[in-house]
Design a protein around this nucleic acid. Structure first.
Length: 443
RNA sequence: GGAGAGGUGGCUGAGUGGUCGAAAGCAGCGGUUUGCUAAACCGUCGUAGUGCCUUAAAGCGCUACCGGGGGUUCGAAUCCCCCCCUCUCCGCCA
């Protein structure tokens, strides 16, 4: 029985949108999307909306008629009267209704696709610009070390220390994969524990461990689908994808749920491996482990009330930065321009760590406020007392990308003799103060 | 993977073709009673879409929704098919 409801609930995508939100704010949305270079076809929206309402109205009118006729038939049959003629009429009515509902269904699909491809509206505080050239540095912490020798890049240092093995990784998996040995492997694990402990003990996050494979509905919920299907790995024969980031499973934890307002803001942190196809990034970061098909990440995710999301965004960004401060790694934080801000985000800070091997700052965390964009798609609401339920704001950020932190430590803490000094904060986790040429072998 | 049981409103749980949006209980909300609390009693109590009205809200009406999709029928929570999920047993396995 197709109905207007199928617009809201579709098994394979579960992409759901709030039509009223677009109807009531169409011109404003269109105007603000221009800032990020997206041209919203308002006429197409109104055309779809109008056609859909026309069909729905007609269909519902006929259904009301049919329901009445049905009752009459039931009553007459009880008295033994012949109702075959009326039955014939209702049957014909049913065919017409089916046609109309089929039309509604088609428009709903068109509508869904149309809406699913509209990016989020940038926040007022986001600098205008077309690309990363327009990003604005908001702060800088630490001073890049002055080496009295030529610092090496991690792709040289790692293999020399025996802790990083890209050749064998290529053999068993392919390009853009890594094998870590000994203290290299343990450093990765130490970083994960260090980050999780910091966020749960000092920043008030609740730890959660979620599946690394997720379904399509989850990817729609956070906005990776339908536009970015080619960025993720899909499991053949299943509606399952390798999670590109823990943002997806963690944010979707509360899909189709209404949270008690008293629990907000809700701060979660999750470790997970992340899998990305990196389609279209050929030739970028080809050396080393900066850009991998698989990497690990500790993710920070928050669910907040709308009025508190920007405060929480600032906090979340500081929480991520705190990891670098504890590790003594210089960084800077930039706010992305309208043109550089991702599809689902309203505002994003990138945290960039200093990498001697690149003689520059490299993104190590991206902290975004999605406002209600994801919440509308994933139907995540909150409710306080008698108030009508409203959509939460969702935010997330890396806290941090573990692989790139590994690189930052190896490169920033390298010594003239080729060894790597372990930052104070990490020593108890790594159970070592220095990684030298025997680092690959744990005796 | 095989066999069986089951998925109904915030929760528990009735309902096997017609007036069922769905009994009953609990929770919630409003009120009466009450020194306060508790109890009792009365009332109320799903979501979404759409039409009318309205600046809007409210209101009134209609439609849809009983895990999801499809089918049978004049008419489906109820009958049939497919899928998903939960539980039990078997197999396999970390």
């Amino acid at each position: 029985m197709a109905s207007s409801r199928c617009f809201l609930r579709n098994n394979e995508s579960s992409g759901m949108y709030d039509l009223n939100f677009f109807r009531n704010n169409l011109e404003q949305i269109r105007h603000r999307l221009l800032a990020r270079g997206f041209v919203l076809d308002a006429e197409a929206f109104q055309d779809l909306d109008g056609r859909r309402r026309q069909l729905v109205t007609e269909s519902e009118r006929l259904k009301a008629e049919r329901n009445q006729a049905t009752v009459t038939i039931g009553q007459r049959r009880k008295t033994g009267a012949d109702t075959s003629e009326q039955q014939q009429q209702v049957r014909a009515m049913g065919e017409r209704i089916a046609e109309l509902d089929e039309g509604v269904k088609q428009i709903d699909l068109e509508f869904r696709d149309f809406l699913a491809r509209i990016p989020n509206v940038p926040h007022d505080t986001v600098p205008l610009g077309n690309d990363e050239q327009a990003n604005v540095e908001v702060r800088r912490w630490g001073t890049p070390r002055d080496f009295n020798f030529a610092p090496k890049a991690h792709w040289d240092l790692g293999p020399e220390l025996g802790i990083l093995d890209l050749d064998r990784a290529a053999k068993i998996a392919g390009a853009r994969f890594a094998v870590y040995w000994g203290l290299g492997a343990r450093l990765e694990r130490a970083l994960i524990n260090f980050m999780l402990d910091l966020h749960t003990r000092e920043h008030g996050y609740q730890e959660v461990l979620t599946p690394f494979l997720i379904n399509s509905a989850s990817l729609y919920g956070t906005g990776q689908l339908p536009k970015f299907a080619e960025d993720s790995f899909r499991c053949e024969g299943h509606d399952l994808w390798l999670a590109p980031t823990a943002e997806v499973p963690v944010t979707n934890l509360f899909r189709d749920e209404t949270l008690n307002a008293a629990t907000l803001p809700l701060s979660l942190c999750a470790y997970s491996p992340c899998f990305r196809s990196e389609a279209g990034s050929y030739g970028r970061d080809v050396r080393g482990i900066i850009r991998q098909h698989q990497f690990q990440k500790v993710e920070l995710v928050k669910f907040t009330r709308p009025e508190q999301s920007y405060d929480e965004h600032e906090k979340l960004t500081r929480d991520a930065e705190h990891v670098l401060q504890k590790l003594g790694l210089p960084y800077r934080t930039v706010v992305l321009s309208t043109g550089d801000t991702g599809f689902s985000a309203a505002k994003t800070y990138d945290i960039e760590v200093w990498l001697p091997g690149q003689n520059g700052y490299k993104e190590i965390s991206s902290c975004s406020n999605f406002e209600a964009f994801q919440a509308r798609r994933a139907q995540i609401r909150f409710k306080a007392g008698k108030e009508k339920a409203d959509f939460v704001h969702t935010l997330n950020g890396s806290g941090l990308a573990v692989g790139r932190t590994w690189v930052a430590i190896v490169e920033n803490y390298q010594q003239a003799d080729g060894s790597v000094l372990v930052p104070e904060a990490l020593r108890s986790y790594l159970n070592a103060e220095r990684i030298d040429a025997t680092g690959g072998r744990l005796v």
